[in-house]
């Protein structure tokens, strides 16, 4: 066992734990917005740590550089896709699950959708 393999193994383990928690979050959360929250965040750090772990395990600077490129790509693409999903879901007429009593106040985005004809016509 070299140091590279030990560090890489630790990073891969951390990454898999976070990916597992992301999956558990998708299962446990009450609605799509909260599921996206769990899915986006946990999988971003999970995938980053896993890829970096694989890069370090190989032990050459080429692999580490390449894994950094992939990490930057994930950091940019993951939030964009989850934002697009959340916005499309809202415009299609799904409303977020709100626990507290004051439902109007907790949903600031509804007034935008209802006052903007362009956004409203998407609704089914």
């Amino acid at each position: 066992m070299t140091y590279y393999e030990i560090i890489g193994g630790i990073l891969i383990t951390i990454g898999s734990i976070f990916l597992f928690l992301g999956g558990l979050g998708i299962y446990r959360m009450p609605d799509i917005f909260n599921r996206l929250q769990a899915g986006t965040k946990a999988t971003t750090l999970g995938a980053m740590s896993l890829i970096l772990g694989v890069g370090i395990m190989e032990g050459t600077w080429e692999w580490i550089l390449k894994s950094f490129v992939i990490i930057v790509y994930i950091a940019f693409s993951n939030p964009i896709s989850s934002h697009a999903l959340a916005r499309a879901t809202y415009l299609r007429g799904h409303r977020p699950y709100i626990k507290s009593e004051d439902k109007e106040k907790m949903d600031a985005y509804r007034e935008v959708v209802e006052n903007d004809p362009k956004r409203k016509e998407v609704e089914v």
Binding site: L21, G46, K99
Partner: peptide, 19 residues
Amino acid sequence: NLDVARRVISPELPINPGI
């Protein structure tokens, strides 16, 4: 990530979502 992990693991699911 630690925040999400904490929320997912805790049995009573401590969330109060809104926009």
